[in-house]
Simulated scan of single mutants.
Amino acid sequence: MELGNDTRISEFLLLGLSEDPELQPLIFGIFLSLYLITVCGNLLIILATTSDSHLHIPMYFFLSNLSFVDICFISTTIPKMLVNIQTQSRVITYTGCITQMFFFTLFAVLDVFLLTMMAYDRYVAICQPLHYMVIMNPRLCVLMILLSWIMSVLHSLLYSLMASQLSFCTDVEIPHFFCELNQVVRLVCSDTFLNSMVTYFTALGIAGSSLTYVLYSYCKIVFSISAISSAQGKYKAFSTCASHLSVVSLFYCTSLGVYLSAGTTPSSQASATASVMYTVVTPMLNPFIYSLRNNAISKALKRCFGMETVKGPLIPG
């Protein structure tokens, strides 16, 4: 490996969650189990929403896309971590590190956009129910997904290109289980002011505007639900939002908690451990939240596996 104060290094070293050799088999078993649970759970959501014609509505269209993105999101980090543990190697190539940063940022930003679109869908469904199918038409839904992909790719490409222009020092050890942007930038010898400003303002713009809109949407939703006279009507209206609200809270609380505490956390290893919450735990819990709190998903899964007999017509929503 050629080391020096330039970008011609060939590889980095991922230190992982622990350097203790005795803990490696345990870490491997735990994260392999979490990865398989996440992939299988999200595949079941995709299967249920695509195979059941009663779920071919915007709400479940966005949900199936979220499940697909969550599978890709966790697949950018965990497989490489498992391979490194199994081969007892910590090496990731320079190209592999930049590529991992690109796809990690891509799917993280897509998660943000999808959660925002799902909040808009719930806002229209509850605050403007008579115009729901007109506003949330298939063309608009596909266009929203397409625009979110384009914006996410451009955002990730900007980060990756800026990272590829940095000059690295001889220390190439990353105290993380994947090439996390902030940890990689700390290995740079050149001035990182421009990178830091671009990263800060773009992340603040995307995450901040998304969170602001989600909060605004739910304020309007709560106001609309409070105007419903019957208690049963209020419960049915809120139950359609409960799963999404749970996922939004889990995603933002864990990710913001990690990055807001990054400056006060003395140990980078502790930051890596905390990152497990939004990179692994959140994608794993999403299918459980939607399947347990959503009767339509549960029934669709039962029908997929022949566990429920359909008696009479079913009405979506």
Results as ranks from 00 to 15, higher is better:
residue 238 F to R: 05
residue 233 G to R: 04
residue 216 Y to M: 06
residue 225 I to G: 02
residue 224 S to T: 12
residue 300 A to M: 03
residue 267 S to E: 12
residue 264 T to K: 12
residue 286 N to W: 03
residue 214 V to N: 04
residue 224 S to F: 11
residue 285 L to W: 00
residue 241 C to R: 02
residue 246 S to Y: 10
residue 270 A to R: 10
residue 236 K to T: 14
residue 277 M to E: 10
residue 294 N to W: 01
residue 256 L to M: 15
residue 301 L to G: 05
residue 247 V to L: 08
residue 220 K to G: 06
residue 227 A to C: 08
residue 277 M to H: 06
residue 290 Y to A: 03
residue 234 K to L: 02
residue 242 A to V: 08
residue 277 M to F: 10
residue 277 M to I: 05
residue 269 Q to D: 07
residue 261 S to T: 15
residue 276 V to C: 05
residue 218 Y to L: 00
residue 253 C to K: 11
residue 226 S to L: 14
residue 256 L to W: 13
residue 265 T to R: 07
residue 280 V to L: 04
residue 259 Y to P: 06
residue 209 S to A: 07
residue 216 Y to I: 04
residue 244 H to W: 06
residue 257 G to H: 12
residue 303 R to C: 09
residue 280 V to E: 05
residue 264 T to E: 13
residue 237 A to I: 11
residue 211 L to D: 10
residue 281 V to S: 03
residue 275 S to F: 06
residue 296 A to P: 02
residue 241 C to K: 01
residue 216 Y to N: 04
residue 288 F to V: 14
residue 215 L to F: 13
residue 266 P to G: 14
residue 303 R to N: 05
residue 254 T to K: 08
residue 251 F to N: 03
residue 270 A to V: 11
residue 219 C to N: 15
residue 221 I to T: 10
residue 260 L to H: 08
residue 217 S to G: 08
residue 268 S to Y: 02
residue 247 V to E: 00
residue 226 S to V: 12
residue 274 A to V: 10
residue 276 V to D: 07
residue 228 I to C: 06
residue 226 S to M: 14
residue 270 A to F: 05
residue 218 Y to V: 00
residue 296 A to R: 02
residue 249 S to F: 15
residue 302 K to C: 11
residue 229 S to P: 05
residue 251 F to Y: 14
residue 261 S to I: 15
residue 272 A to V: 01
residue 258 V to L: 14
residue 299 K to E: 14
residue 239 S to P: 10
residue 254 T to L: 09
residue 295 N to T: 07
residue 218 Y to R: 10
residue 278 Y to K: 06
residue 258 V to D: 11
residue 282 T to V: 15
residue 270 A to P: 03
residue 226 S to K: 15
residue 240 T to W: 04
residue 289 I to Q: 09
residue 274 A to D: 04
residue 251 F to K: 03
residue 268 S to V: 00
residue 267 S to L: 13
residue 209 S to M: 14
residue 272 A to R: 06
residue 255 S to L: 13
residue 230 S to A: 11
residue 233 G to H: 05
residue 247 V to P: 00
residue 292 L to S: 09
residue 291 S to P: 02
residue 263 G to P: 04
residue 236 K to F: 13
residue 281 V to P: 00
residue 299 K to T: 11
residue 221 I to D: 04
residue 270 A to M: 08
residue 243 S to H: 01
residue 286 N to P: 02
residue 260 L to Q: 08
residue 255 S to E: 04
residue 215 L to M: 12
residue 272 A to G: 05
residue 285 L to K: 01
residue 273 T to N: 12
residue 218 Y to D: 01
residue 303 R to W: 07
residue 265 T to V: 10
residue 290 Y to K: 03
residue 233 G to Y: 04
residue 284 M to Q: 05
residue 225 I to V: 15
residue 215 L to I: 13
residue 295 N to S: 08
residue 219 C to P: 02
residue 254 T to I: 04
residue 234 K to P: 02
residue 258 V to Q: 15
residue 247 V to G: 01
residue 282 T to H: 12
residue 213 Y to V: 04
residue 282 T to G: 02
residue 218 Y to E: 00
residue 275 S to I: 07
residue 278 Y to M: 06
residue 286 N to Q: 15
residue 235 Y to P: 00
residue 272 A to T: 02
residue 276 V to M: 07
residue 243 S to A: 15
residue 250 L to W: 05
residue 263 G to C: 07
residue 294 N to D: 14
residue 290 Y to L: 04
residue 216 Y to K: 08
residue 275 S to M: 07
residue 242 A to I: 13
residue 219 C to E: 09
residue 231 A to T: 10
residue 280 V to N: 01
residue 250 L to D: 01
